[in-house]
Nucleic acid binder design. Structure first.
Lengths: 329, 329
DNA sequence: CTGAAAGCGCTAACAT
DNA sequence: ATGTTAGCGCTTTCAG
């Protein structure tokens, strides 16, 4: 059924080694035999067996990816970009989902390592010494995205802190003086890796400081954030800006406010972060920070493939963002 | 570096075969040696080499998935469900994206077959005799989802036609007599496989017939459907229902109507299809058909794993849908 | 320029 | 119950 190099060798009256030389255009073979072998191979529709090649070469041409899940729009966009770029460079993509569970993430890593992937793109929920020493055991390149671990692992992300800081500048420039900040993941502070969320919060504080906002912001860290909003009142004379660490929260907030008959941005302003693609369907257009998510995916692949093929990481500078001025602030 | 069964064999003073017996708890080994081997293996943190195993067993424990892209929410949800179920059953998932291009899909298939995946879950854009004979060459199970090819390939989907038919019943029961149908993919009729879209359209016509709607519906097949809407006027006395073959179109339509100051459903009704998760953020709540997308993913994996392991397809009946009564009709 | 042989790590059939 | 042997399909020396 399956045609192997041996079959081709027999037919062409040469050895397997020669067929290999022809197929992978290595040196040390005459044009004539090479041409013949290639012809026969094509005619028989020869397809190389990647598993066999992997065994001997110790390379599988596949890159493992670990994400939380695909429910968040951004992750799907990210994976889309990753797959595209990877296939373009001749690599497969093995996708595994950690579901934000630290133990589950470890399973994913082991799973991929045993599958002999050539590298891993990791959006981790873990951190700490123990995790780092665990990760250090592996000799394949691991690249982290979004959540930073330490300088020992290549990291690709954006200047989150600066982005949020700038966002605050913009909000203040629109006349807001009162702030509410929503970021449920902060509840996991110390428990799991929420680097990006911490950075955004830091940027928020720095932004307030820079703009000399002295009224204390309300920080909501509960996943029941809508309920917490119910206890607040929104008045026009002291207009509040609800800053959400993610568009998804902002959308939920806007949905709730609309239902309550609170008008945006007349009575209250809402700011998001990410610029997910579904925003184009929602009114009012959410003011948000554009996160170059697909660029991150592409860079991650480029970087890891480069490391696999040439052994060195070309450090990637933090990527830039853009404030999207919508109608909600 | 890497610890192999040979290493373990040497240390335990047994042969590789025996180690294999212990590790994979096969018969013909004493409890005592087995226990010892397992201990040593654990201590040395032995990890089996899947590529080597694949080569000899001819199985890679990975399932290839081919989708259009991940920009559509549903696809991401689907893949999420697929990954979850697959890993649960001990399989990897290799994801490839065809970008809706027939040639690109062929590349994906070849790619996966050469990667020796054990089976393929295929959301195809291709169809026709030539494609079928191409597909027939492969001896791994291929399961089709959404777009049907022929009875030669296992198919998992829902009763789309019936769903749309029932949707029309519901719309008519709400007092609508005039219909506009939007489905841009229909422009590809005859060019690529748009089975689900055709089924939905058929259901639409059947629904009109069953409800004795005689006024001719407007069918919009252009991707510039918003522009086409601009030429239409919406009057309360002859209220029209805009039936969209996908929630995404419906969202765009609603967004456009809201901008035009047309109130939904007072002046015009809008119906979607899919019940994508972002609907919860959009007002008014879109009336739509709930498509059990994750169930399809799980069933696809179950079915293909069953086929791989036991050699037979357990036919899956078409799945059921549910009409979600929102506020837009 | 080409052939022969060894071996990647594991499994499976056959001996002992 | 355990050891031995022969591959899986390919790449890679080392001879010739």
């Amino acid at each position: 059924m399956k045609v192997t190099i041996k079959d081709i060798a027999t037919i062409c009256g040469v050895s397997a080694g020669t067929v290999d030389r022809a197929l992978n255009n290595r040196t040390g073979i005459s044009e004539k035999t090479k041409k013949k072998i290639l012809e026969v191979a094509k005619e028989m529709n020869y397809q190389p067996d990647y598993t066999a090649r992997s065994l001997v070469m110790g390379k599988t041409m596949t890159i493992g990816v670990i994400l939380f899940d695909l429910h968040n729009r951004s992750f799907a966009q990210l994976l889309n970009a990753i797959e595209l770029k990877a296939r373009q460079l001749g690599y497969f993509v093995n996708i595994t989902l950690s579901d934000k569970k630290p133990e589950s993430e470890i399973d994913c890593i082991n799973y991929l390592v045993n599958g002999k992937v050539d590298g891993i793109i990791l959006f981790t929920v873990n951190k700490g010494e123990q995790f780092e020493s665990y990760l250090s055991k592996f000799d394949i390149p691991i690249i982290t995205i979004f959540n930073y671990i330490s300088e020992k692992w290549e990291y690709i992300g954006i200047r989150e802190r600066q982005a949020m800081k700038d966002a605050i500048d913009y909000i203040v420039s629109q006349g807001y003086q009162k702030f509410i900040y929503i970021s449920p993941p902060l509840a996991y502070l110390g428990k799991s890796n929420i680097y990006t969320q911490e950075e955004r919060l830091n940027g928020f504080y720095e932004g307030l400081k820079r703009n000399r906002i002295h009224s204390k912001p309300v920080i909501i860290k509960s996943s029941e954030y809508i309920k917490e909003l119910e206890n607040l009142t929104f008045s026009k004379n002291e207009k509040a800006a609800i800053v959400c660490s993610t568009d998804l929260y902002a959308l939920k907030v806007m949905h709730y406010l609309k239902k309550q008959g609170v008008s945006i941005p007349e009575q209250v302003g809402v700011m998001g972060f990410d610029d997910i693609d579904i925003l184009e369907y929602v009114t009012p257009r959410l003011t948000t920070v554009k996160y170059p998510i697909e660029e991150i995916g592409r860079r991650a692949i480029e970087s890891i493939v480069n490391k696999i093929d040439h052994g060195d990481f070309v450090p990637t500078p933090l990527l830039d963002y853009e404030i999207i001025k919508g109608e909600s602030i």
